[in-house]
């Protein structure tokens, strides 16, 4: 799971850089004022949105809906049966004449 946290964080960081740069560019194109553009970029409260995005990502990672699960992920699961279950299987097979 540690790998997924790291991925979520780096994803949040890269998206924030892209989103903030695009916001600043739009402000600059409309106003022609570089200082205002930088101010709006700062006003996006980079750190807060970064954390919000990270939190949002982690929350969705707990929701299984819409996720594709590897179909063979359960293949190696082999649960040992209790001794009383073994006796029960023995009895059932015997009842059907298989022993």
């Amino acid at each position: 799971m540690r790998g997924f946290h790291k991925r979520s964080f780096v994803k949040a960081l890269s998206w924030r850089v892209l989103a903030t740069v695009s916001t600043m560019t739009i402000v600059y194109v409309f106003t022609g004022q570089p200082l205002l553009s930088l101010g709006v970029g700062g006003a996006e409260v980079v750190v807060v949105k970064l954390l919000l995005y990270y939190g949002h990502e982690r929350l969705w990672s707990w929701i299984s809906w819409g996720k594709l699960r590897h179909p063979l992920s359960g293949l190696a699961v082999s649960r040992e049966l209790d001794p009383e279950h073994l006796d029960e299987i023995h009895t059932r097979l015997e009842e059907l004449g298989y022993l």
Binding site: P71, L72, L75, V77, S78, L86
Partner: peptide, 14 residues
């Protein structure tokens, strides 16, 4: 008694 876990290859639905 071989159980499902003893099946050594994937199933059709896997």
């Amino acid at each position: 008694f071989p159980m499902f876990g003893d099946l050594a290859v994937p199933t059709l639905w896997d």
